[in-house]
Computed example of a mutant assay.
Amino acid sequence: MKAMLCHAYGPPSALRPGELPDPVPGPGEVLLRVEACGVNFPDLLLIEGRYQQKPPLPFAPGGEVSGRVAALGEGVDGFRPGDRVAALMTHGGFAEAVALPAEAVVPVPEGVAPEVAAAVCLAYGTALHALRDRGALQPGETLLVLGAAGGTGLAAVQLGRLMGARVIAAAGSAARLEACRAEGADALLDYNAPDWRDQLKALTGGRGADVVFDPVGGAYTEPALRGTAWRGRYLVVGFAAGEIPRPPLNLALLKGCAITGVFFGEFARRERAAYRALLADLFGWIAEGKLRPHVSRTLPLERAPEALEALAARQATGKLVLLTHAAAPAR
């Protein structure tokens, strides 16, 4: 089968089209004919050799797929060939097919486009797990989203609004902030401005944000932590800025706030029933029209390096998705 392969750790430009053996589902596995694959920051870390897991070379990156069930391994119940599904894994999605444990596969309602389904599991799953399970975001509270125009950030903006919060979107350019406004952000904050912490204080009436969603890290973390409200919840989601911050912990003491880790992949592995229920909620909201994942661009599989380079340069708004079985032209 066709795949985009990493033969040696390096930049996205090192990915090359190639062939892998056709996967065969083993006991308890589902063979998925991949129609679309989301492009995510962990894919970059994986091909650069900076991820906590290092699959044997060569491998296909890609950890978020949608498609149809092609075959079932021994002992699999609950799925039939032809079923629409989505799945989250570590790698293997930049390919035409993948075999996965059945417990990692979730149903997708008919009518949800493949590129939309491929945008849900990681970004929207992470955002909902963070805001609802880890941050206990309540209606009427103020949510600050850092990196708000990225895939996970924009998901947090949309879900924060759906959950009844007042959402302050923080990003690094006027165009990216306008994309956040279009998705429902109540207030905008350019965190490249030298006085952005003062702006945050003004936007919250001096009170601070009840919940901070931080997938960025780096130099943005300490000012955002200082801008957290009394008994606030600071959600550590990731480090897209490339630096793991070391904020002074006396800030957590003085504010009586919680600094809470969000590791969605481990949650999905350890708490399968809760993970599947969370994704069922997301796909249910999408089918009902309450949630519309923002897929800004789709590209054919062979243009995976271009998609990853846009992600690395922080030029992508919302989600980038690769199409394998050519359901639509690149746009």
Score class of each variant (00 low, 15 high):
Gly289Trp: 10
Asp210Leu: 01
Leu177Glu: 06
Ala240Ser: 15
Gly218Cys: 14
Arg226Phe: 03
His325Thr: 13
Pro245Asp: 10
Ala123Tyr: 05
Glu64Gln: 11
Leu5Arg: 05
Phe94Leu: 10
Leu122Asp: 02
Ala193Asp: 07
Asp22Lys: 06
Ala219Cys: 05
Ala136Asn: 14
Gly151Met: 09
Gly160Arg: 03
Lys201Gly: 02
Asp43Ser: 05
Ala313Tyr: 04
Lys54Asp: 04
Val157Thr: 11
Gly256Arg: 11
Val34Met: 05
Val69Ser: 08
Arg166Gln: 13
Phe41Pro: 00
Ala330Ile: 04
Pro247Ile: 12
Arg331Ser: 14
Gly238Phe: 07
Leu137Asn: 03
Tyr9Phe: 15
Trp230Glu: 14
Ala136Ile: 00
His294Leu: 15
Lys54Trp: 06
Asp198Ile: 00
Arg50His: 12
Glu302Ile: 01
Tyr234Gly: 06
Val24Gly: 06
Leu131Gln: 01
Pro215Met: 12
Pro11Cys: 08
Pro247Val: 13
Gly93Asp: 09
Leu146Glu: 03
Leu15His: 07
Ala273Ser: 13
Phe264His: 07
Arg50Val: 06
Leu100Ser: 12
Pro101Cys: 14
His129Gly: 02
Pro23Cys: 09
Val212Ser: 01
Cys37Asn: 10
Gly227Val: 00
Leu323Val: 13
Ala8Phe: 08
Arg207Tyr: 01
Ala155Glu: 08
Ala268Leu: 07
Ala240Pro: 06
Leu279Thr: 00
Val120Pro: 00
Ala304Gln: 11
Arg292Asp: 11
Ala187Ser: 13
His294Ile: 01
Glu288Trp: 02
Thr324Gly: 07
Thr228Trp: 00
Gly62Leu: 03
Asp186Cys: 06
Ala155Tyr: 08
Trp230Asp: 03
Gly208Thr: 00
Gly147Tyr: 09
Leu100Cys: 14
Gly206Ser: 04
Ile47Pro: 02
Ala60Trp: 06
Gln315Ile: 01
